Simulated assay, not measured.
Amino acid sequence: MTTVTVDATPKPRVERRASRAARLGLRTLALYAVSVLIGIGIWQLLAMRYGASLVASPSQTLSAAGELAREGTLTNSILASSRRILIGWGLGLAVGVPAGLFIGQIKVVRQLLEPYIEFFRFIPPIAFVTLAVVWLGIGESSKVVLIFYTSVFIVILNTSAGVMAVSESKLRAAASLGANRRQILRGVVLPSTVPYIITGARLAMGNSFLTIVSAEIVAAQVGLGALIWTSRNYGRIDWVFVGIITLGVLGFVFDRVLRIVASRVLRRYGVKL
């Protein structure tokens, strides 16, 4: 009689997790691919329905993208817009996070600054485009300042909201254990506020893309906003589609990179993105 030996040893936990993560990753990629194909199909139908003068087809847009890439226009536009967005958004984070922590913790400061924050955050950056050009010129400074303006208030509001949402019992428990103000900030307030900061950073990134187009249309020779405006002047609908789609793809990539970096760097705070 042949004896069949069955290995009943369970797989190691790490191996099971890796296998599960791989399956989830493949499923996500498959869903993304299906979603993109459906979108391209709808896009093609709209192009067939309204004609190339109104809606450039996927093939025409791809051909125009290749044309602009060979000339170097598309690459230069992507680099110029990305640089402006990252600098302005980064400055918004660098100022907004400390300011939000400060405002959220000190009531008097919050009451003094709240009228200005609530006033300026309702004024769209495009309203300041002319003043930015007059005050700072048509160089990089005016566009970076506009992106900083659109980012900083979002970050401040989200960060201060996170600070004020910290449970009072946690603060009292830390104080009763002898923690000073700095230790409470690092050990209690900041970990609880991290999800709010990440949300503010993502929202600020989205608003930065909205602002860069209006800023570059008015005061730039190079950039995706300038590309869209120039294409409109030349009647090149396919170039307009290239600029719009490039903005969307670039924003999608920036947001995903932000989520990956944040999840890895801030994992010790218990943040799940």
Rank of each mutant, 00 (worst) to 15 (best):
I138L: 15
V34N: 08
S142N: 10
I123G: 06
I244D: 03
I138H: 07
V189T: 12
F153N: 01
L203R: 09
M1W: 00
V249E: 08
Q105P: 11
S263W: 01
V194H: 03
A8W: 11
P10T: 04
T28C: 09
A33G: 10
P10V: 05
L26Y: 11
I123L: 14
V261R: 06
L91P: 00
G104C: 05
A127C: 08
L112G: 08
V6T: 09
G137L: 09
V108S: 14
A220Y: 02
R121A: 02
Y269A: 09
L46V: 06
R202S: 14
L93G: 00
L46A: 10
V271Q: 04
M1D: 00
T246L: 02
V55W: 03
W239H: 10
L112C: 08
Y50T: 14
I106E: 09
L210T: 04
T61M: 05
A56K: 05
R27E: 09
E71R: 14
P12V: 13
V166L: 08
L54S: 13
V36N: 05
K107F: 10
G235Y: 04
F241R: 02
T75L: 13
N207P: 04
L31T: 15
S141C: 08
N233D: 12
L157W: 00
A201Y: 03
A132H: 01
G187I: 08
P10M: 04
Y196M: 06
P10F: 00
L68W: 09
K170H: 11
T193W: 02
A220V: 05
A179I: 07
I85Y: 01
V188N: 05
S169H: 10
R17T: 13
T130G: 13
R186L: 15
F119G: 07
L190V: 11
E15P: 07
T159E: 01
T150V: 15
G25Y: 12
A21M: 15
A69N: 06
I260G: 12
L91N: 03
R264F: 14
N158C: 10
S59Y: 13
G25H: 11
L74G: 01
A52E: 11
F254H: 07
G225P: 03
Y149T: 03
N207G: 15
G162P: 02
K143E: 05
M205P: 00
R256P: 02
V222T: 08
R49A: 15
K107H: 14
F252A: 12
A94Q: 09
V271C: 06
V163G: 00
Q221G: 12
I42Y: 03
V265M: 08
T130K: 13
V134G: 02
T246N: 01
V240Q: 01
R256G: 11
I85G: 02
G223R: 04
I237A: 07
F148S: 04
V213S: 02
A161V: 12
A204Q: 02
A8Y: 10
V155G: 03
